[in-house]
Simulated assay, not measured.
Amino acid sequence: MQTPDFSDARSRHRAIAMLTALVVVLVLTGIGVYGLIAGPPTSNEPGTDDRDQPGPAVTAHPVPTTTPRLPMVRPSADPETFARTVATVLFSWDTGSGFLPLDYTSVVLTVGDPSGAEQAGLAADIASYLPNREAWVELRQYATTQRLSIDDAYIPDAWADALAQAQPGQLADGTIAYTIEGTRHRTGVWNDETVTSEHPVAFTVFLVCAPTYDTCHLLRLSQLGNPLR
């Protein structure tokens, strides 16, 4: 009677196991890279959740031929115009520019309330909208950039209730809120191919304008994904 060749069976089993493991690794690597470029759902804070580990090393990219520049919040006495500008600059960054999250934070802080009363809180608000330093380093491997397209900007109905409930003198004259709704666009490079992602975002910016100041200034930001309606 012919005996079964167990060595051949074991070899086939090992080959199948190795092939299965390789497929799993490739799938997980793809998910990790997509998550890094796409970022977290908008209900979470991007400063704490963009921490996916990258996949294999990517191809080095050429050094930019032009001098990178930080975005700038242009002054305006019109509340809606100013709110839109703040929102656009807040979401505009380029990991390949040589700048760090703190540099982008400082840009928005320069248009904060000159009294300084909300400066510490505003700095924390801005930081929650940006990747932290560790995530920034990872995203830079993929030459990740971000921008915002605004669909709507409006004074939320809830702001009237907030004004009605405020104590006399609690809010400076000209304090107003604008809710911004739009789409966050991210672009990166993976294996010399462009990868993009889009996520809807909504948040509220709190401003103080005339008659307190000649131009508008930023007071605070709501939690991303938790705006006034």
Rank of each mutant, 00 (worst) to 15 (best):
Q2I: 05
Q2A: 09
Q2M: 03
R10T: 04
H13C: 04
A17T: 11
M18C: 08
A21P: 04
A21G: 10
V24G: 03
L26N: 13
G35L: 10
G35M: 09
D52A: 12
G55K: 01
G55R: 01
G55E: 04
H61G: 08
P62T: 08
P64F: 11
P64Q: 10
P68H: 14
L70T: 05
M72G: 00
R74I: 06
P75A: 07
P75F: 02
S76V: 07
S76G: 12
S76M: 04
A77K: 10
D78K: 14
P79N: 06
A83C: 08
T85Q: 14
T85L: 09
D94V: 01
D94S: 07
G96S: 15
F99N: 03
P101R: 11
L102F: 07
Y104L: 07
T105N: 14
V108A: 04
T110H: 12
T110D: 12
P114Y: 10
S115N: 11
S115D: 15
G116V: 08
E118M: 07
Q119Y: 13
G121E: 14
G121Y: 07
A123E: 15
A123I: 02
A124K: 12
D125H: 04
Y129D: 02
L130F: 09
N132D: 15
A135R: 00
V137S: 10
E138A: 14
R140N: 14
A143V: 13
T144F: 00
Q146Y: 04
L148W: 12
D151R: 10
D152A: 14
A153V: 13
Y154R: 13
P156I: 09
A158M: 06
D161P: 00
L163G: 03
L163C: 05
A164L: 07
G169R: 07
Q170V: 02
L171T: 08
L171C: 06
L171K: 07
G174M: 02
A177P: 01
T179Y: 05
V189A: 06
N191Y: 07
V195T: 12
T196N: 13
H199K: 15
P200M: 03
L207H: 06
L207Q: 04
L207V: 08
C209P: 05
P211F: 07
Y213G: 01
H217S: 09
L218S: 03
L221G: 01
L224W: 02
G225Y: 08
G225M: 10
R229G: 12
R229E: 09
